[in-house]
């Protein structure tokens, strides 16, 4: 039972992270790139910036966020390693 809830929490977290992953890269960088390009931030069109810079920064942050949250979840259910 404990294991099942641990897995459910993991799935929720993975779902959240993958949604963000999809929105910044495929959403902002590809599908809505033209709309976002109407906005300029610091001399770069926003859609173009997400496609060539921003999404990569978000990817890095997402992995560290997931690793951190999962270690919290592991401890909550007492399944952490040593």
């Amino acid at each position: 039972m404990k294991q099942r809830s641990h897995w459910q929490d993991n799935l929720r977290l993975v779902g959240l992270c993958l949604t963000i992953w999809f929105v910044v890269s495929f959403g902002f960088g590809i599908l809505f790139v033209d709309a976002l390009n109407r906005v300029q931030i610091g001399g770069v069109q926003l859609g173009f910036w997400f496609a060539q810079q921003g999404s990569i920064y978000v990817f890095v942050a997402l992995i560290f966020f997931y690793a951190w949250r999962m270690s919290v979840v592991d401890r909550r259910y007492g399944v952490e390693e040593d």
Binding site: C17, L18, Q52, S55
Partner: peptide
């Protein structure tokens, strides 16, 4: 740029 970095998110999660 996105293709060769975004895969690490899939890998890690």
């Amino acid at each position: 740029l996105m293709g060769w970095t975004g895969g690490y998110v899939l890998l890690a999660l």
